[in-house]
Design a protein around this nucleic acid. Structure first.
Length: 702
DNA sequence: ATAGGGTTAG
């Protein structure tokens, strides 16, 4: 320390009088302030008992202020604080406020509070510092609490206090508290303070009172980019993205330049309306302003492209962000999951865990959703295991997603287990369980009764049934052949029956070939969703099952006129943890030759076992050869053949198909399960089929 | 010393 050239060793002017006591001391020069390490050595020196120091002509405030400004760590601050206490100058409000602010900037909020609490009589600066600290780190309740304590002590808020308090009120959100603050703002005369007024605008917007926000905004004489952004994001947050975009245009026409936060808000609005076209123009605006590497804009862009289905583009932005960020990863994972890239979503989720990035419940929900889409039971079990050990295990959203996942991955018992262990069962948890039973129920009377029972005891738990629950009951009744009861049930529903209810009735009518009731249900469906292909296909299938070919043809024409066509079918099978996809007659697989050999051998064995084609089901316009060709090439057959040649004897095969299983494949699969002595589980677009020993769990109703 | 933003699921 003595060797440092930045501190001048000074002999005390009275050293001749008090030679032992006051020599030497060190003077910090202007230049030494620029070198923090030197400064902190100096502080140590000052604190040491061996070197009592004289403070003649010593400017404490600027000296310690510089120390605080040059601090790089909490430990520096504690040194300064200790010194202030030692010197008995902890009442220096200026320095203590500076200390608290510095602590806040380091994220050391509880330390900031400790320093604050040692101060006997905080002035408005010190109150601002601590309230700012709580508000900055989203500890809104504490911020508001400190604000009330400040009021009790009759300290009047200033133009810096109020924006922080307003942020806290909007963050909770506490409309009442914020309104009181607004009243105070009025009484104290801050109506011209643009910082305070922007805070008021944002507060109302956060509370969903967008009209109040607009009133305040409209009264502003000066509007800066923050005022505009508060309104833009206010509309975006309150489900009015179109209005948000309009306000953005208005802002630009008044000549206010957007900054990066404004652009983030506008991108969010485009994300909400999934307007990629205009979103791209904002993207080019970002580039023009040279902001394309701003991490938060990259996050917003990732979210926009991901949600709009451009997952590859989104991923390229994702890759550019170097700092791990929860929101970024969530956006990418949910983008994948939403757009049918379930495996990528799961993979990214695993990467996230591998990278030790903290997940939140939104991450967990998206990941579970993705697992449900993949349909692999092993993966589902892995996911459940992960969740049950994580902090998300009691989240209702996560749990109902898990129930749904297990049901969709073929294990209704596991779904029930999750249901049982969910402590806080809300209406959707119940729905997921009932829907889960519905997926597997079919003709299985035990499960049908379980479903009924659940429906009835919902009310005991004070939960009002919603349309999904009615749909399930219609499904259960209709499937069991009680079509009239199902119809009566619908007519007596206390709520307007929707797509799910009519859809359930229509498919029940198809099973039992009840044409008139089915036509009625279809009519309702067409009026509710006139462009949903599924409804037309269902009705067409109903006609086909009743052999009313002329009407089948009519539907086909109707669909062609509306520009609707069927989805291309595919089947997935998981082998050794790897998913393989097959389309009709797919020869692209590397083991295609073996697959088709297996297929032929199966076909032979089926014929030997007396298998005959059902020629009635909507195939009337194909000739014999075409019919055979089409049927035994169906994607699930390829998946089964591949499964048989690549797994050990006796292994169950789990297959996922995007369309509904056709009647011929269904009966063929039943027989195959018996011939090869394998359990084959097929999840089609509607439900599960557990094929075993020549029968299917659906009892041939699906 | 201040204010405005992004992920949203069953």
């Amino acid at each position: 320390m003595a060797s440092s050239p930045l501190l001048t060793k000074i002999s005390h002017p009275f050293s001749s009088i008090y030679p032992t006591k006051f020599t030497p001391f060190y003077l910090a020069t202007e230049q030494s302030f620029k070198f923090p390490s030197t400064l902190f050595n100096f502080v140590k020196h000052l604190s040491s008992n061996d070197n009592p120091t004289i403070f003649h002509n010593f400017n404490f405030d600027s000296f310690y202020a510089n120390l605080i400004d040059n601090s790089s760590h909490k430990i520096n601050l504690t040194q300064v604080h200790a010194k202030l206490l030692l010197l008995g100058i902890q009442q220096n409000g200026f320095l203590v406020s500076k200390l608290v602010n510095a602590a806040v900037n380091f994220g050391e909020i509880s330390y900031a509070r400790k320093v604050f609490d040692k101060f006997p009589d905080p002035d408005v600066f010190l109150w601002n510092a601590i309230i700012r600290g709580y508000s900055k780190y989203n500890l809104f309740a504490s911020a508001v609490e400190m604000y009330s304590r400040m009021q009790v002590l009759w300290v009047s808020p200033d133009g810096y206090t109020l924006p922080h308090v307003l942020k806290a009120c909007g963050g909770i959100p506490s409309f009442r508290m914020g309104q009181q603050v607004h009243g105070q703002i009025f009484r104290l005369g801050f109506e011209k303070d643009v910082f305070v007024q922007n805070g008021v605008v944002a507060f109302y917007a956060k509370c969903g009172k967008i009209a109040s926000a607009k009133v305040v905004f409209d009264r502003l004489e000066i509007r800066n980019v923050v005022s505009w952004t508060s309104m833009i994001s206010g509309y975006a947050q309150n489900g009015q993205p179109i209005e948000a975009l309009r306000v953005f245009d208005e802002m630009r026409s008044t000549g206010v330049m957007p900054d990066w936060i404004a652009l983030v808000s506008v991108i969010r609005a485009h994300t909400d309306v999934e307007d990629l076209e205009h979103g791209k123009s904002i993207h080019s605006c970002v580039i023009k302003m040279g902001l394309e590497l701003e991490p938060d804009l990259l996050i917003a862009l990732t979210a926009m492209y991901a949600k709009c289905g451009q997952v590859m583009v989104a991923r390229s932005f994702f890759n550019l962000v170097k700092v791990p960020n929860l929101i970024l990863w969530n956006a990418m994972i949910s983008g994948y999951a939403k757009n049918g890239y379930a495996e990528e979503a799961v993979k990214l989720f695993r990467d996230m865990i591998a990278h030790n990035i903290k997940t939140d419940s939104i991450t967990a929900r998206s990941a579970v959703l993705a697992c449900a889409q993949v349909g692999s039971f092993d993966l589902a079990r892995w996911m459940d295991n992960y969740i049950s050990k994580s902090e998300h295990k009691d989240d209702v959203f996560v749990n109902s997603a898990l129930i749904d996942m297990f049901a969709k991955c073929g294990n209704v018992d596991m779904a029930r287990m999750v249901f049982n262990r969910t402590l806080d069962k809300d209406v959707v948890v119940w729905s997921s369980m009932i829907v889960g039973y519905g997926l597997h129920a079919c003709n299985h009377s035990g499960l049908v009764e379980d479903g009924w029972q659940l429906f009835h005891c919902m009310k005991d738990y004070g939960i009002e049934p919603r349309h999904q629950h009615y749909a399930c009951l219609v499904d259960l009744l209709g499937r069991s052949g009680y079509l009239d009861q199902a119809y009566d049930f619908i007519m007596n529903m206390p709520i307007e029956p929707g797509v799910s209810v009519w859809g359930a009735l229509l498919s029940a009518c198809k099973i039992h070939r009840h044409v008139t009731l089915g036509e009625y249900a279809a009519e309702r469906l067409f009026s509710l969703e006139s462009y949903n292909t599924g409804h037309y296909v269902q009705l067409s299938n109903l006609y086909a099952s009743a052999r009313m070919w002329d009407r089948v043809a009519k539907i086909r024409v109707l669909m062609r006129d509306k520009g609707l066509s069927k989805d291309l079918g595919y089947s997935l099978i998981e082998i050794n943890g790897k998913l393989e996809a097959f389309r009709v007659g797919d020869k692209s697989h590397p083991r295609s030759k073996e697959i088709f050999e297996e297929l032929e051998s199966l076909e032979r064995r089926l014929k030997q076992a007396g298998f005959v084609l059902d020629r009635n089901s909507s195939l009337h316009d194909l000739n014999e050869e075409e019919m055979e060709e089409t049927l035994c090439n169906h994607s699930e057959r390829l998946a089964i053949a591949f499964g048989l040649i690549s797994t050990a004897q006796g292994t169950a095969l789990r297959i996922t198909k995007n369309l509904r299983a056709c009647i011929n494949c269904h009966s063929a699969t039943k027989l195959i399960s018996k011939l090869v002595n394998r359990e084959i589980i097929v999840r089609d677009a509607n439900r599960f089929h557990h094929f075993k020993d020549g029968v299917c769990s659906c009892g041939d109703y699906w």
